[in-house]
Structures are given as structure tokens and as C-alpha cells.
């Protein structure tokens, strides 16, 4: 009799356990997962080992190390150069990047704050481009003519354009497979001080370094291969130009 009772309770317990197991099962939802990953490499530019050769500005000067780790050079600039009406001041901005860096589109923005605001254009110092390695970015430069014509520039955005794929597009400075550091060549070689300019036209120098007659150049180096939202042929050059224009607004 006792054995029968044990069997009976055993059967009931087993059935209840089975019910419980089924109940637990209702919480196991059918699910699925998937994972993928994308790798983004980071472009890099290195500083050239040396400054450019003043006599051959697209080549490095082996005797002039780039101790400042700069990208933008003015090998002919003399600090605190004196301005003499009718004369020129040596100034030769040139951009270089290290061999093995990413290929890049290079731009220079020139900010001219030599004369006081409101001074006429004929009294404003200007420069002319050294050669066709550089071009003005359309609609982004200012000449010393009231109709903005001519090639005597007082300020604005310029693009490196040596052998560019299209007339109005920047060219790549090809550093990635270069055997030695690469340079754009000089944007210009000198700033001309107009004969009509006199000392009353010039920004007065104060103890505030921002209050001094200056012509400042800024370089913008944009890695090639970034199309952004641009499409079609030369999309990365078009995107570089677009980004440079945005950048220039912050420098003006």
C-alpha cells in the first residue's frame, strides 16, 4: 500500500514538473541577431623633414631642417620687414607635406590687414601669382580693381592647381607615393606696396599684436578621396573645394 502511494505521488510530481517546464518555455522568444563592422582608416599628413629650397621651391632644401614642424613656409620672409611705397617685400608662401602622407588638395587663404578699413584699393598692398601652380578660387578673391578684375590680388582663397583635372578644380599634391617630401611651389614671391600708400593709411601698431599691419596666410590641407555628398567625376576635388570655401569663411 505504501509503495502504491509513493508511485502515485511520484507520477503526480513528474507531471507537475512537466507542466512547469512547459510554462517556463513560454518565455523563450524566438530571436535572432546579426553584427557587422566597417573599418574607417584615418588619413594622415606628416610635416616635411626640411623646408623647401628657395631656388627650387618644389624640392626640399637638405640644409634647412623643418625644426618648427610646419606645413606652411615663407623662406624669403624677413621678420618685421619695412614697407616702402613703390617697393616690394619678399614673401613666398609655400606648402609642403611629408612623403608617404595622403595625397591632398591644398588651399591658401590670404588675409590682408595692412591698411586701415576704408582705405582705397589703389593704396592697398597686393601680390600677383607666381605661376599656374596656383589659381584663385572663383568668387573668393579680391583684386585691387573696383570691378574685381585683373591679377593684382589683395586677399582671398587660392587653390593649388598644377595639372588639375579641370580648369576650375584644385589639383592633388601627390605625396603618398612620392620618393621625397612634396611642396606646392610658392603662391607668390613678394607683396607690392603701392606708391600711393602712405603711413597714415597703415594700421597703427599697438602693444596688442592684433593691432599691427599684417598680411597673414593660412593653409588648408584636405585629404584626397573624400567625396562627401559630391558626385560624378572629380567628386573629391569638388568636395575639397566646397570644404575649403567653408573653411575660408572662418578665416576672413
Amino acid at each position: 500500500m505504501e509503495n502504491k502511494k509513493k508511485k502515485r505521488y511520484g507520477i503526480i510530481a513528474a507531471l507537475l514538473l512537466l507542466v512547469m517546464a512547459a510554462g517556463v518555455g513560454t518565455y523563450a522568444w524566438l530571436t535572432a541577431q546579426e553584427h557587422i563592422d566597417n573599418v574607417f582608416t584615418v588619413g594622415s599628413f606628416g610635416h616635411p623633414e626640411n623646408k623647401p629650397d628657395p631656388t627650387d621651391p618644389e624640392k626640399p632644401d637638405p640644409d634647412n631642417p623643418n625644426t618648427e614642424k610646419a606645413y606652411l613656409f615663407e623662406t624669403q620672409w624677413v621678420a618685421n620687414s619695412k614697407m616702402v611705397p613703390g617697393a616690394t617685400v619678399a614673401k613666398n608662401p609655400n606648402v609642403g607635406i611629408k612623403a608617404g602622407s595622403d595625397d591632398a588638395y591644398v588651399f591658401i587663404y590670404v588675409k590682408n590687414a595692412i591698411v586701415k578699413p576704408g582705405t582705397s584699393l589703389e593704396k592697398t598692398p597686393y601680390f600677383t601669382l607666381k605661376n599656374t601652380n596656383w589659381k584663385p578660387v572663383e568668387g573668393q578673391v579680391k583684386t585691387n580693381q573696383s570691378d574685381n578684375s585683373g591679377n593684382q590680388y589683395v586677399s582671398g582663397l587660392f587653390m593649388y592647381s598644377k595639372n588639375s583635372a579641370a580648369e576650375n578644380l584644385p589639383a592633388k599634391l601627390e605625396a603618398n607615393k612620392a620618393a621625397q617630401d612634396v611642396y606646392t611651389d610658392e603662391l607668390f614671391t613678394a607683396v607690392t606696396i603701392p606708391s600711393a600708400m602712405n603711413n597714415t593709411d597703415v594700421v597703427e601698431t599697438t602693444t596688442d599684436p592684433k593691432q599691427a599691419p599684417t598680411m597673414t596666410v593660412f593653409a588648408y590641407i584636405f585629404g584626397a578621396g573624400q567625396n562627401g555628398t559630391e558626385q560624378g567625376e572629380n567628386a573629391d576635388a569638388q568636395n575639397a573645394l566646397k570644404q575649403a570655401k567653408e573653411w575660408a569663411k572662418t578665416q576672413a
Binding site: W29, T31, Q33, E34, H35, I36, D37, N38, F40, V42
Partner: peptide, 14 residues
């Protein structure tokens, strides 16, 4: 000095 990795995880439930 390295790179970036975008991880995309998706999950589904009945």
C-alpha cells in the same frame, strides 16, 4: 594612430 570601426548590431524578436 589607428583606425575607426563602426559596429552595427541588429536584433529581431518574433
Amino acid at each position: 594612430g589607428g583606425s575607426y570601426r563602426l559596429d552595427i548590431d541588429v536584433q529581431a524578436v518574433q
